[in-house]
Write a protein that binds this DNA or RNA. Sequence first.
DNA 1: GTCTATACGCGGATAGAC
DNA 2: GTCTATCCGCGTATAGAC
Lengths: 201, 201
Amino acid sequence: MLTNLSRGQHVGTRDVILDAAATVIRTRGMANATTREIAKAAGYSEATLYKHFTGKVELLVAVLRERSPGFAHLARAMGDDDADLTTGLTAIATAAIAFYTDNFPMLASIFSDPSILAAHNAGLREVGAGPHRVNEAVVDYLRHHQERGTIRRDADLYAAAGLLVGACFQHAFLGHMNWSDRRPDREAAAGFAAMTTAALR
Amino acid sequence: MLTNLSRGQHVGTRDVILDAAATVIRTRGMANATTREIAKAAGYSEATLYKHFTGKVELLVAVLRERSPGFAHLARAMGDDDADLTTGLTAIATAAIAFYTDNFPMLASIFSDPSILAAHNAGLREVGAGPHRVNEAVVDYLRHHQERGTIRRDADLYAAAGLLVGACFQHAFLGHMNWSDRRPDREAAAGFAAMTTAALR
DNA sequence: GTCTATACGCGGATAGAC
DNA sequence: GTCTATCCGCGTATAGAC
């Protein structure tokens, strides 16, 4: 997801507020992401927040939609489908683990308030975006390989993508739960990729 | 996780409060799970809550640890390792999807408040419990099959368990995000199990 | 566009009676 | 063990001046 900054546009008050809100959510949690805290972090008064957003829910939903860093990097890993299948899947898994590790807390937080969850889902559906896009992109990646004969004809690509992406998703989750015996990220990514490859040929 | 009810013990005030809190969290979200709401749902005054728990965090953490229904059913699916591998994994995947679908909102909610997350993790570590236990149990299940020769000797069981359980975990998550093109639970479970089996032989 | 000041209800928590 | 009554700070939101 591109920020206005990376598009080279003017960075307005709205962007400063969104950045500040994202920071507060990441560091103190959604429960402590109050209008007071966000305003203080942004260097503006609370009243200014309400000039740029109709209310708190709209602000938070905007943060969720416009401040999900790392997705571009993940997409780049999937554009590269010339490499060996296992190598490519390892790169995808590594990027996916990093992406989900960064974004899991913010993503999970929206479940704490049904009104935010509903607004967020509605907003995503309108523009056709959402977390399932990662799975769909992996399916496309696998289809390219299948067309070149690297993957067997009758393989269930949907299930395979679900296994790989889901494993990365849960690995990131377990990382936040401080599971000490968990494998390091790179090792886990390689293992997931190797097993997925084994299932596909 | 057994409740006092299923152990046949007396159902005291504490249990009533925990049940009420779990209901409020599930229906209104963690953000709206106030002491007022919980007390009203339990049929007791707020003051009574504070006679049974030192504070709100302790109450919520107790709910998370003692009100995770369906885990027993999931465990049962894994005890049955006499069946064909794909059949067994399908049963496990089906139970896992149901389990995560039920518990994801409550589990995800704890990320909204770092103090609750920390207290929850500390509590789990003390008794050696946690979400990773599901993965470990699947590894054990796979090892039994490996010892009987149903799975190849050099298979990475840890990665395989991560793929299957992770896929179910994320499938449940996507379900809550209202992804319309998502496969039905049973179909998804069968697909995940079949692909995992393919990777293991 | 941004500020200061303020309204007002809600949430966590406790004192003390029964 | 449970209740009623109450405290006090916090959080959202707005009015109105500059």
